Computed example of a mutant assay.
Amino acid sequence: MRFYSNLFAFIIIEWKLICGQHIDIDPNGYIMYCSCMGRFGNQAEQLLGSLQFAKSVDRTLILPPFIQYNHYKINFIPFDDYFELEPIQRFHRVMTLETFMKYLSPTVWPEESRSILCYSSRGSPDKTDQGCNPLDGNPFNSFWTHIGVKEFANGSVFHSPLLTDYKYAKEWKTRFRDIKVLAFVGAPSAFPTNEKAVQIQKYITLSSRVTTNGDKYRKARGFEGKPYLALHLRHGSDWLKACDLLKENPNMNQLFSSQQCSPVSHHSPHIPLPYELCFPTFHTIVQQIKQTISESEEQIETIYIATDNNNQTLWQLIHESVPNMTLITPTKTMWSSGVKNKSKPFISQPIIIIKHFGN
C-alpha cells in the first residue's frame, strides 16, 4: 500500500493487479449510471454532462456501454468500441463498466452493499413500490441484467432536492461521502447539457476501430480518397413524432440540440423554433445539397447518406435533382461516424445532437 498525505488526513490507496498492471481503487469513489435515455445522440450528449459532474465531485466515472436498438432488439456496445479512453482520461478519471464489474466490483461494490440513486420515487407499475425501481421497464431492466446486477440490496437512495449539477458539488461530496459507488438510474446530467459541458467534446475521439472500419467501408463503396458530402438525415417515424411537438406546442423555443445551429433559439429564447429545422422538406434538402456542393472548394462527386429511414423514393428524387452525384445510400453499419467524420463538407438538421462528437 502507498500513503499520500496532506495537512488534514492520510488516504490509503488500495490497488488491484490486472494483466500485470496496477489499477488504483479511487478513495473518492465512483459514479455509475444507466445510459437509458434515447438513442446514440442522447446518450452521447449526456455523457458530456456526466463527465462534468464526475469531475466536479472528484469521483471516477464508470463509462456505460452504448445502447443500440435494432428492430426492438436491444444491443450493448462497449464504450471503447466507439471512443478512445486515453484522451478522456486527460480530462478526468474514467474506466469502462466492463473493466469495473470484472475486476473492481467484488471489492468496491459487492452485491450486499449496492444501492441505487434517483431524484425521487419512480413508482412501480402496480403503485406498491415507491423506490427508484431501476429494474422496471426497458432498457433499464436489460441494462442492469446485462452487467449482472439482479438487485440493489441496500435499496433506493433519493437525492432530492440536489440536482446532478456541478454547481452542487460541495453538497454532493458532503451528503454522499459514505457511499462508495453512486449508481444512478439514469445519467447524472441535464438534457440538453449545459454549454460548459459541451466544451468537454474536445476530449472525445473516435476509436481506431471506428475510423479503420470507416475507411474500409469507403474503400468497399468506391469513394476512398475522394472528397464527398455527408448528409445526416433523420426522418424516421420516431423522429417525426418528436418533431410534431413543435406543431403541438407552437411557442416551443428549444428541442434536443437546436441551440447548436439556431441563433434564433440561442439568443432570442422567446422566438419559437420553425418546424422546418426539425423536419425539412424535400425542397430544403435538395437546396442545401446544391448550395453546399456549389460552395465547396473541392470537386464533390459523391454524397454519403446516414439516416434512420432508408427511403428509396426520397433517394431517387435526390438523385434526379443532382444527377451528376453518386449517392451512397444507407447500409446498416456502426462505422457511420467514421465515414461522416472524414467528409468535406457535412450537412445535418440543426436539432440533431451531433456537433459534440467526431474528432
Results as ranks from 00 to 15, higher is better:
residue 2 R to W: 10
residue 5 S to M: 12
residue 11 I to D: 10
residue 13 I to P: 00
residue 15 W to A: 03
residue 24 D to W: 09
residue 29 G to H: 09
residue 32 M to L: 15
residue 32 M to F: 13
residue 35 S to F: 11
residue 44 A to M: 14
residue 48 L to H: 06
residue 49 G to V: 09
residue 57 V to I: 13
residue 58 D to G: 00
residue 62 I to M: 09
residue 63 L to K: 05
residue 67 I to P: 01
residue 69 Y to A: 01
residue 78 P to G: 04
residue 85 L to N: 00
residue 92 H to K: 08
residue 92 H to D: 11
residue 95 M to I: 15
residue 97 L to I: 15
residue 98 E to P: 04
residue 99 T to F: 11
residue 103 Y to W: 14
residue 103 Y to T: 02
residue 106 P to E: 08
residue 106 P to T: 04
residue 107 T to V: 14
residue 117 L to S: 05
residue 130 Q to M: 12
residue 131 G to P: 06
residue 143 F to D: 03
residue 145 T to G: 02
residue 147 I to E: 05
residue 154 N to G: 05
residue 156 S to M: 10
residue 165 D to Q: 02
residue 173 K to F: 07
residue 186 G to K: 12
residue 188 P to V: 15
residue 191 F to G: 04
residue 193 T to C: 11
residue 198 V to E: 11
residue 202 K to I: 13
residue 202 K to T: 10
residue 202 K to F: 06
residue 202 K to P: 00
residue 208 S to P: 07
residue 210 V to E: 10
residue 218 R to A: 07
residue 221 R to F: 13
residue 221 R to W: 12
residue 222 G to L: 12
residue 235 H to M: 12
residue 247 K to Y: 12
residue 250 P to H: 08
residue 251 N to A: 13
residue 255 L to V: 05
residue 267 H to K: 12
residue 270 H to R: 11
residue 278 C to P: 01
residue 278 C to F: 10
residue 284 T to K: 13
residue 294 S to V: 10
residue 295 E to S: 14
residue 296 S to G: 08
residue 300 I to A: 03
residue 300 I to K: 04
residue 300 I to E: 03
residue 307 T to G: 05
residue 307 T to W: 10
residue 308 D to T: 08
residue 308 D to P: 06
residue 310 N to G: 06
residue 318 I to K: 02
residue 325 M to A: 04
residue 338 G to Q: 02
residue 342 K to V: 15
residue 346 F to V: 14
residue 357 F to H: 08
